[in-house]
């Protein structure tokens, strides 16, 4: 993992995207996250909103934008469930913040690094979700760590495919 100075990274320029990509990609991720499980027999071993959050946070290299995007996506996901609103919000807020912070310090053009970051942040998001539910809220929730591990792996695989596709939508100077 190549470590670079923050100023140097900024000098390389922050990637920007058309407004439609900013608007439609998160919306498509949320809609597909709610719709696709019906086609794959109810298995939700993926988290498209998290993958999109990580991508934009890494690409924009801005922790605040990553934080806001993660919070928005998480709250939206929570609103579609019947659980308390804010659990996913906190988990993805932290994930977005960390992705934005990491994007300042590492070479985010490397596909392998981006995939690994997605995998680790997916696991971290699950841990935060579970901790909030069991510790902070004191609610009873059974958990399958195997399913969470599978979800992290699938998220990484999706990132390998999706990130290069989204890279093509960048605005070229």
């Amino acid at each position: 993992m190549s470590l670079l100075g923050a100023d140097y990274r900024r000098d390389m320029g922050v990637h920007s995207y058309p407004v439609l990509v900013y608007a439609l990609t998160p919306l498509a991720a949320l809609v597909l996250q709610a719709w696709l499980p019906r086609l794959v027999l109810g298995y939700t071993w993926f988290d498209l909103p998290l993958v999109v959050t990580v991508y934009f946070a890494l690409a924009r290299r801005n922790p605040i934008q990553g934080t806001l995007m993660g919070a928005g996506m998480g709250l939206f996901e929570d609103a579609l469930t019947h659980h308390a609103i804010g659990v996913n919000g906190i988990a993805k807020t932290v994930a977005g913040f960390l992705a934005g912070s990491v994007g300042v310090r590492i070479d985010v053009e490397n596909h392998t690094i981006r995939t690994m970051v997605t995998f680790l942040l997916s696991l971290l998001s699950s841990v935060i979700y579970f901790s909030i539910y069991r510790v902070l809220l004191g609610l009873n929730l059974e958990w399958s760590w195997l399913a969470e591990l599978m979800k992290a792996v699938v998220n990484a695989l999706i990132a390998m495919v999706l990130f290069p596709l989204l890279d093509r939508t960048r605005v070229r100077d």
């Binding site: 709610a34 019906r38 939700t44 996901e77 579609l80 469930t81 019947h82």
Partner: peptide
Amino acid sequence: QAIGTSGSDSSRVFY
């Protein structure tokens, strides 16, 4: 018609 889910394993709801 069932048209969607919550998108989460921990919330087994559908729309």
